[in-house]
């Protein structure tokens, strides 16, 4: 990993901003570096994938299958997270994830993360707080998407 230790890599990832060194160390112990080739399905909608990813490079598309077509609803890139629902451990994936280019990421087993949260509530609080931020950002972005802000209206300047 470009001569960087997992801990160094994690320290630089925006998701872990503000994490205590011992929490980053704990994450590093659970991390596994993974790579996906272009156009690879990382997980499918509804699939019981238990992995949570921190993206290091490349781009991932989140897609929903509709009859006769696939809608691409969001893309995620370096510094972002993928598969947050696996940390909750309930139900299958909400979207299909596809790599649009070669993707490097750190993968974490959701079950192990949950176990670590239960064993160390201080770590659990830090992780859940970050996850909640991610979910809140995504919810906000989804609401803005639903507003269809750029739809044509009459009588506009510009």
């Amino acid at each position: 990993m470009e001569h960087k230790s997992l801990e160094e890599t994690l320290r630089e990832h925006p998701f872990l901003e503000g994490f205590k060194p011992e929490h980053i160390r704990k994450m590093a112990e659970m991390a596994l570096e993974v790579q996906f080739g272009r156009d690879q399905i990382i997980f499918r909608e509804g699939q019981e994938s238990g992995l949570f990813f921190l993206i290091l490079s490349g781009k991932v598309a989140l897609e929903i299958s509709a009859p006769g077509r696939i809608l691409r609803v969001q893309t995620l890139g370096p510094g972002e997270e993928l598969g947050w629902s696996s940390v909750l451990g309930e139900g299958g994936k909400h979207f299909q994830a596809r790599s649009l280019e070669t993707v490097r990421a750190l993968a974490f087993e959701g079950a192990r993360l949950r176990q670590a949260c239960e064993q160390d509530p201080s770590f659990g609080y830090a992780l859940m707080r970050q996850l909640l931020k991610v979910v809140a950002e995504r919810l906000q972005a989804t609401r803005l998407q639903l507003l269809d802000l750029y739809a044509p209206r009459a009588a506009k300047l510009i």
């Binding site: 989140l62 077509r69 969001q74 893309t75 750029y150």
Partner: peptide, 12 residues
Amino acid sequence: DYGGLSWRGHVG
């Protein structure tokens, strides 16, 4: 805001 499969740029 919405991209089809042929769009390989950012969506969001």
